[in-house]
Design a protein around this nucleic acid. Structure first.
Lengths: 397, 397
DNA sequence: GTGACTTACTTCACGGCGTGACATAACATG
DNA sequence: CATGTTATGTCACGCCGTGAAGTAAGTCAC
């Protein structure tokens, strides 16, 4: 049931400010005149609000456009140096911290290796915190100009009053990562599942750009998905939506590392594919082993394409998306070599109507988009006008 | 990507009016004072806006509440007689038209039998139109006071400029039902899939009341689902989302009437269950045959509960809902006798965390809620302030 | 150069909004 | 009937977006 909220005349301004800021951000350098057309706001209001934005320093002028007989348009853009955002990718083998300007240019980076069997929460939190210090030092960016830190983690992120993380592969059960980090920094924090952050990166800057009903799959050793419904990453009742990897595709089928049977992940996750080809994921390097199977045309790969296509078909029937993006390193590998077969299997296993509507494409950002996506969590807040706009030197919590 | 819209100071009023109207509708008789607390609006604004609503005739006073020493509160409520809504259920064997007042009390009803093999679009449209005339005559309600007609149909409803319906079981391929109806009436029309309308009925008045992340399943001869994300029925890119029945639960498994294999519907749809028990759906009466199987404890029924549970588990993993409502006549039958088993299967096949969050319950409105739900489509528009509020005698298109 | 023309932007008065402070209404109690 | 209490109505205020009118800043013809 829709639960609308009351609004005051001031929310109006906040909303229109956000509309303008977002348009400016995604449509690049734009004149006030054009903005008026894009947003539907009157020229007067555009002038008024952009005036505020310029006074705050969020927006700057960016040159003129020559005219053929009139006053030239002044181009406006979000000042990429107005603030900075930090994205963190917590993976199986590393913690990666990246600092971006508002144009999402990477300005500094820090990597911390993780031993695949040691993922203590304190260790990871420590790596994140020291990584943040590193990128601050490395870029020379003042701490007060950082709008926040986004963190993409594996597993389920339960967004209550304090984010709790349940990550089976890390042995994390209700780890309060947010609290751990907040003890070490006063920067605003946003924690989300890594598949969802990667999905948001593809949605904003990659193969999902411009779409509103989109699913970004993340196929690596494990399998996940980010589901975007009507432009918003769907999180469900407590943020664990999108566990596509553990939906059943073959009831009572192959055992999965989640303890269940017949999960999609057991068939199309890298570990599952190798196992089906008779290889132990522990004995070989996953990535090169899978690559070899693909190159050599091993029959298991065609079978995998079938399963993947059927898994996508289920998403198509349930969500009726306009685009499906295949991501993750294993997804890229399979997609590059077997996209036609995957699409064919998707077509065979979905209803004609929704299948016609969807385009299935490969991710454009590569498997390293998790940190970028995590940074967009901060950016999202900024565009909604919820971050301290003109943070002087403060370190808001 | 979120696409916010500019707003003017007038939208503000419209929005707050809608907030108030909706609160009044769902919270029953309420005083202005209480409304202020419920909506967050100031007492002054509540007075102001309710004044408008009363002047329009939408809202009426509904008695006083005794006080212990102060001015008594005046209770307000939406006038159930302000207008009327019509809901239509287009099923396999009948077209049912019902007229409700705004409190959703049924005021008149018309039934038109349909021969299971004759579903010409013109015939159905004719039944709907004559049914509408019947309920108008039967209730004595003036045509000008009808806010609109909602229609629930089987199959996929493609909501473009003109609703196109693709219903395999009816042999409908892109039938422009909206256009057909509009030729015969000038009442506002809202067409949607029957599973979705039933879902909205359960969400508003049944087992889903008060929830925001909800899935209502419709298990009859066929299988569908209505997916409510964040309070809104999810429709996807072109309204065909929720085709749960044709997701694959057993790749390459039993043939389904959709032409595919291994669809959930082939296992838990009434027709599929009977077929698995060796009965032909055409030779027996589906409902009594299934009922008999359930009563006699046929092993196929336990198996069906397993499949159903696994199917629900997939929804739980993907959507992380707070509630799942089992509806449809076959769903009721199975749920009444095998709910524990179904839940157990759902638990076994879903991740622990999202499973803990969800409650799986039986529908409360019975299988006949399709027409009621279709009427809520009109009600929804009314509460958003999009229907001609004080329709004098007109017949808006 | 200069004036006419064109286009982009700014200013301003206006009507509409929600709000808090205050006024009033409508009851119970003593 | 006075007093206290609570619900509701009124009003001036500050803020909003808008259209109309004004201003800025170019091109172009001559």
């Amino acid at each position: 049931m829709v639960r609308p909220e009351r609004r005051t005349v001031r929310d109006l301004r906040k909303g229109n400010r956000a509309v303008l800021l977002r348009t400016l951000y995604f449509s690049g350098p734009t004149s006030r005149h054009e903005l008026s057309g894009l947003t539907g706001l009157s020229a007067a209001s555009v002038s008024n609000v952009t005036g505020d934005l310029i006074a705050e320093g969020v927006v700057v002028e960016a040159g003129l456009v020559e005219s053929d007989g009139g006053r030239p348009r002044v181009l406006l853009r979000v000042d990429p140096e107005f603030g900075y955002v930090i994205g963190v990718d917590v993976g199986e083998t590393h913690v990666r911290v990246e600092l971006f300007d508002l144009d999402m240019n990477e300005r500094a980076k820090a990597d911390r290796p993780l031993h695949p069997s040691r993922h203590d929460a304190e260790l990871v939190a420590g790596h994140i915190l020291s990584g943040v210090e590193d990128v601050l030092a490395g870029s020379g960016v003042d701490r007060g100009r950082v709008l926040g830190v986004g963190v993409g983690v594996p597993g389920i992120v339960e967004n209550g009053p304090e984010a709790l993380i349940h990550a089976q592969t890390f042995g994390w059960d209700a780890v309060p990562l947010g609290t751990l980090l907040r003890a070490g920094t006063s920067l605003p924090l946003y924690v989300d599942n890594g598949a969802k952050t990667m999905g948001q990166a593809e949605l904003w800057f990659g193969a999902g750009r411009g779409t509103r009903h989109t699913i970004v799959t993340l196929i690596g050793s494990g399998v996940g998905a980010s589901i975007v419904t009507d432009g918003i990453t769907y999180r469900g009742a407590d943020s664990s939506a999108g566990e596509w990897g553990h939906t059943k595709i073959e009831l009572g089928g192959r055992p999965c590392r989640c303890g269940g049977r017949g999960c999609l992940e057991a068939y199309i996750g890298a570990e599952g594919v190798l196992a089906r080809a008779g290889l132990s994921a522990e004995a070989v390097d996953e990535q090169s082993a899978l690559s070899e199977l693909v190159e050599s045309g091993h029959p298991v790969i065609d079978e995998t394409a079938e399963y993947l296509g059927a898994g996508l078909a289920n998403l198509i029937n349930l969500f009726n998306p306009e685009r499906i993006v295949i991501g993750g390193w294993a997804g890229h590998l399979l997609g590059r070599h077997r996209l036609t077969r995957i699409k064919q299997a998707a077509a065979e296993n979905s209803l004609a109507h929704p299948y016609e509507r969807v385009s299935i494409v490969l991710g454009r950002l590569g498997p390293d988009a998790v940190a970028l996506g995590a940074a967009t969590l901060v950016m999202e807040e900024f565009l909604l006008g919820r971050t301290p706009a003109a943070a002087p030197q403060s370190t808001a919590g």
